[in-house]
């Protein structure tokens, strides 16, 4: 590579600027510390103690909670959660990308209307939306009635209280979180880039593959994280639409705290989930940076 020696001034500048901004961040930092860091630390610390007989914590150090996690039963729940969230994310991409693409190409006036339409479900009450799905999916629901009336099926399809119902519910709930970052990323692309690609002889499909799509990767990854993270930890939809049969990690954590009264184990589960999600966000950030800045030319050391 041409630049082997690190350019002076490039590396420390970011760090210096970070420290300089500190005084201005103080109120925000305080709020974050108080309402995020402290509870997080508290919960995290529970994971290393023993449970009390009737809930609560006994402050005796132990790693048993993490040993229990290795139980196939729990590993299975984690795997199912990841699998479900992955399916939801993939479907959200499949539905959300074309949607965002269409919205970006609408005339400005229609663009706003379409965006509001995408957001509308997000603004209606969560329970109402979920019960609407129950009405649609249940054995005597509208979908079954409709299909039977048309004569496609004789017996009602079992849809409610299945894993697909959970996936549909999660997808419906979090789809806007995919569409919005994609829309923002696509609409901020310089239109002249696609013109330049066209001018150099690319047909519309190749323009999409070589310009539009790669440049939207950061938005796409943001959307994926936005969908994957809550889809993985949601516990209401699995219960309402999955009938409690599909246990996801969110349900498990909730049950440990509220039903089993095993706070330390719940805390261990929560800790694992948090670490998983933080790792995911870091991966997304570095992947996005890779797209924009290109492959790492050199290792950047961040020292003060």
């Amino acid at each position: 590579m041409a630049t082997q020696s690190p350019t002076p001034g490039v590396v420390p500048r970011g760090a210096r600027r970070g420290w300089a901004a500190l005084p201005f961040l103080t109120p925000g930092t305080l709020v974050l510390a108080l309402f995020v860091a402290v509870p997080l630390l508290l919960v995290t610390s529970y994971a290393f103690f023993e449970r009390g007989r009737f809930g609560g914590v006994v402050y005796t150090f132990t790693l048993d909670n993490f040993v229990r996690l290795a139980d196939p039963l729990y590993l299975n729940v984690i795997a199912t959660s990841i699998g479900t969230a992955l399916i939801v994310t993939v479907l959200a991409v499949a539905l959300g990308y074309p949607t965002a693409l269409v919205i970006v190409r609408l005339p400005p006036k229609w663009r706003t209307i379409a965006l509001i339409a995408v957001l509308l479900p997000f603004w209606t009450n969560f329970l109402i939306r979920t019960y609407a799905w129950i009405l649609l999916l249940n054995n005597a629901g509208w979908i079954n009635q409709g299909l039977q009336a048309v004569g496609i099926i004789d017996e009602p399809l079992k849809m409610l209280y299945t894993q697909p119902a959970v996936i549909i519910g999660l997808l419906y709930m979090y789809l806007p979180l995919m569409v919005l970052p994609l829309y923002s990323s696509l609409s901020s692309q310089d239109a002249q880039l696609t013109e330049a690609a066209t001018n150099l002889g690319s047909n519309p499909f190749r323009v999409f593959r070589t310009i539009t799509l790669p440049l939207s990767v950061p938005g796409l990854l943001t959307g994926c994280v936005f969908v994957f993270v809550p889809a993985m930890s949601n516990f209401v939809i699995p219960e309402l639409l999955g009938g409690g049969k599909t246990v996801l990690i969110g349900n498990l954590i909730r049950d440990q705290f509220l039903k089993a009264r095993d706070w330390p184990f719940g805390a261990a589960l929560a800790l694992v989930l948090t670490i998983l999600l933080i790792a995911l966000i870091f991966a997304q950030q570095s992947a996005s940076r890779r797209v924009i800045e290109g492959p790492r030319e050199r290792k950047v050391k961040r020292d003060a």
């Binding site: 013109e195 690609a197 001018n199």
Partner: peptide, 21 residues
């Protein structure tokens, strides 16, 4: 269509592809 025209243009604002070397 624009991609079939035997004409190449250099844009005033360059329009370089930022994700390519």
């Amino acid at each position: 269509p624009a991609h079939r025209r035997p004409v190449n243009m250099m844009f005033q604002s360059y329009a370089l592809f930022p994700h390519m070397s």
